[in-house]
Amino acid sequence: MRHMIDIAELSLQEIDDILTLAKDIIAHPEVYQDDCNRKKLATLFFEPSTRTRLSFESAMLDLGGSVLGFSEAMSSSAAKGESVADTIRTVSCYSDIIAMRHPKEGAPLIASLNASVPVINAGDGGHNHPTQTLTDLLTILTEKGRLDNLTVGLCGDLQFGRTVHSLITAMARYGNVRFALISPAELRVPGYIKENVLEKNNIPWKETEQIDEVMPELDILYMTRVQKERFFNEADYIRLKDSYILTTDKLKNAKEEMRILHPLPRVNEIEYAVDQDPRAAYFRQVQNGKYVRMALMLKLLGLR
């Protein structure tokens, strides 16, 4: 492993190594606080994503390193028409590792082909976002103690939600995992995911428009935002949006040990009252995002 562009490139063993290291960092953060002494992370954000950038920067600071970079293309060399390849060749001279977000799909791959230091894809358009998926996996592992033998419900925009596709693909590799796909008919999981991932691997899954129908079976409920601009007309959006708001009332039928995840930011799809429920894991998920990025950077830098 030299770069982290697409999580599909990692073996189960490599994912396991990252998650195990992340768990150890959670347990003994002081052991790792000087691991990246004098190392520099460059965060190259060609489109803004404050959360993801802060998570990476906080991760490097907690490892004793420092950070530099830019947070939007306007202020960067890209605004002057420089190619991704040239930007990366330059930044490679100033940093030990790069985290890059770009609106165009495949830009981080181009970066990795031209970099002399490791490159981490921090999101390329609607394509890949491997550290989000690693965050989700670490959260499921720490909350449930396992990544196999689980019924995973995914709710909301399952058509355009890249975190959903990536999580399905990643979880499908573990034994005895079942999926409940909860979405309006307009926003179902695309056919190629069902065909290439679910059916190809004989993974049990069902599709429903009603969250109540499957709630009692779920071990994980992964909520996503239903975005207004995905709908063809206002009437459909108004009709459907409220069926995917998670309320304390809807949780009455859920297992005590179920856990609720959300990649954040949320708009209105999880009622604030749910935050008090011990099953709400989405803020712990944010915390895990930092730990898993710490683990990933240590691995890519060859320090652990």
């Binding site: 190619s83 991704v84 390849a85 770009h102 609106p103 165009k104 799909e105 495949g106 830009a107 791959l109 181009i110 390329d124 358009g125 609607g126 394509h127």
Partner: peptide, 13 residues
């Protein structure tokens, strides 16, 4: 031909 692909904005790739 994907307009969201990096090849659409950088001709030399």
């Amino acid at each position: 031909k994907n307009p969201r692909c990096i090849t659409s904005s950088e001709q030399e790739i």
